[in-house]
């Protein structure tokens, strides 16, 4: 969390970049996706990009709705095919900076094939995958990233399948920039998204977001503030002075592997 990032956060008027007649957005109270959209707008501001040479492409889902609120060149496409449209757009107009916003269902299930091939081709796109572990828009069904044991409308006794590690997937498929961020670390998100957009080649940022309305409610994780706090605990965020104390130890994390945030893989092309 740099002073630069905080300075960028203080000087921005988000309303300049929003389609005001569309606001307030349709996302549920406490949905983390709005935090990501803010970070994206800050990241673009920090890169000082020309809005006329910037395109946002999204598929279907809660996360993909975000492009509808950005006052810029946006493309809302079919389910799972955001990367396909984006690839075509980039081929036709290589001068454009193309940002893809997708979700865990859109990008990893129906669009999983397009994701790995976009990564394999190392197309110069920035893909933000907003992972909220569920299909929020259709009512909270199990997603490819749902952690085993989690309740969803289609897994009322808890999910049993192992989830995708999206970052490992696209790294193996050939992406040249892979990072993970979280809505609970919003300023770090700015720098990750900015680095992803600036990177030449397929850059992928998985962003842990929260769905308090479905995932949180079904799994009794509390509302948005509780979920944000718990998200921090997934990232080993016990500070050093506390960790050094003999009484304080992070409780062992049942079942869910600790996740690393930051840039996980980078290959200059």
């Amino acid at each position: 969390m740099t002073a630069k990032a905080l300075a960028a956060a203080t000087g921005i008027d988000y309303r300049e970049h929003l389609r005001l007649p569309m606001m307030p957005h349709i996302l549920c109270p406490g949905c983390g996706h709005g935090i990501v959209l803010k970070a994206l707008l800050r990241a673009i501001r920090s890169l000082d990009l020309d809005w006329d040479r910037l395109a946002f492409v999204a598929g279907i889902g809660c996360s993909s709705r975000l492009v509808g609120y950005i006052d810029g060149c946006t493309l809302h496409t079919t389910h799972g095919r955001a990367l396909t449209f984006a690839t075509g757009l980039k081929l036709a107009r290589p001068d454009l900076t193309v940002v893809v916003i997708t979700g865990d269902g859109d990008g990893l299930a129906i669009g999983g094939n397009h994701l790995i091939h976009a990564a394999r081709r190392d197309v110069d796109l920035a893909c933000l995958l907003l992972n909220n572990e569920t299909y929020g828009m259709t009512g909270g069904q199990v997603a490819p990233t749902t952690v085993p044991g989690s309740v969803s409308t289609t897994t009322p006794r808890g999910a049993t399948e192992p989830p995708f590690d999206a970052c490992a997937l696209v790294t193996a498929a050939g992406a040249s920039f892979v990072a993970r961020g979280a809505t609970s670390l919003p300023l770090e998100l700015d720098t990750l998204i900015a680095a992803a957009i600036a990177h030449r080649g397929f850059s992928f940022v998985e962003i842990e977001s929260d769905c308090p309305e479905y995932f949180g409610r079904y799994n009794r994780l509390g509302r948005a503030p509780e979920m944000l706090q718990q998200q921090r605990r997934r990232f080993d965020e016990v500070d050093e002075t506390l960790a050094a104390k003999r009484f304080v130890g992070a409780p062992p994390h049942a079942g869910v592997p600790r996740l690393r945030t930051g840039v996980l893989h980078e290959r200059k092309t």
Partner: peptide, 22 residues
């Protein structure tokens, strides 16, 4: 300044519902 998380705050993704007060 010692902090001892109570059992109800042993929070993980599937665990308790309250957090240690910040």
């Amino acid at each position: 300044l010692d902090r001892i998380p109570p059992p109800s705050a042993f929070v993980d993704r599937h665990g308790g519902a309250v957090a240690y007060p910040a």
